[in-house]
Design a protein around this nucleic acid. Structure first.
Lengths: 150, 150
DNA sequence: TATTGTTATACTCTATAACTATA
DNA sequence: TATAGTTATAGAGTATAACAATA
């Protein structure tokens, strides 16, 4: 007890890399993103394109504003990502029925097909990322991350 | 059961943002880094400088190569980070006793003092990042992250 | 020959401000 | 006035290659 008090009095000297949640989160996240980028290279896509496809597939048509909020990406970045995907023929920008300012990002048939194959690759990458963890531990990690990543 | 089979046959359509570990890790990590960057702004430091100070404080003198390996940062980036910290008077580059190629990064007295205060801020930021989690859950998350972030 | 540190460089990502067209 | 999308731009982060000094 007195040892701990002495250490904390020295001004946080018990801090270590291995107990720094922010560092561990950023490092693990970075590895996952890089691994997914490598896996998606044959498709000419990067992780962030994949998350756009994923969000659009999950919700079946989102405004760019909604995409940005959902993904935590700046609106100006959403424009660039959707530009890429549209140029590749994977999404369309459909007019919103009630608001002429907003454009709904919808998967094309080709986009749905590519997303399906990319999702399989992503599942493989995730399986490797979470390699050391058993099924229950993976579920526990996902549950905790969901509450932290809000 | 038949529903799940039909969905997986559609090519991974059950994938969702909320069950994508890589996405959640990257998003949570990004938030933690940004929050720490904001907190460190008064010191003229960024998260990555803080991790260098942390590693040096924890090990009491590391080569730049060791720092890069430990932090998952490219050697050329380590140079720039140590340059910044040295310019600010927070670290020294001491000669290695046995190898004239390597330079040991060591905290100065000012560096130790600043690191102590930065660590307190970092602890506050981490506390907010992990806000929704109880003590046991925080420990569980750290344990899981340690095994994934290797 | 291999390794440590360094420089230069390019590319990705993030963030901000300013603009347009609509609401 | 406020919002959705867009453009331009700057800064931070990441990655690669090439080099000097040393092992």
């Amino acid at each position: 007890m007195s040892i701990v008090v002495a250490l904390t009095d020295r001004g946080g000297a018990i801090a270590t890399l291995d107990s720094d949640a922010g560092f561990l989160l950023a490092r693990a996240g970075g590895r996952a993103i890089r691994a997914l980028n490598r896996a998606l290279e044959p498709f000419g896509l990067r992780s962030r394109h994949y998350t756009v496809l994923l969000a659009a597939a999950e919700h079946g048509g989102l405004s760019q504003r909604e995409l940005g909020d959902l993904l935590g990406v700046d609106p100006s970045a959403v424009v660039a990502l959707v530009d890429d995907l549209q140029r590749a023929g994977l999404v369309r920008r459909d007019p919103h029925p009630d608001d002429r300012r907003t454009r709904l990002v919808v998967l094309t048939e080709a986009g749905t097909e590519v997303f399906g194959r990319a999702a399989e690759l992503a599942a493989k990458v995730e399986d490797e990322t979470l390699g050391p963890l058993g099924p229950d531990e993976r579920a526990a990690l996902l549950g905790l991350l969901r509450r932290v990543a809000r």
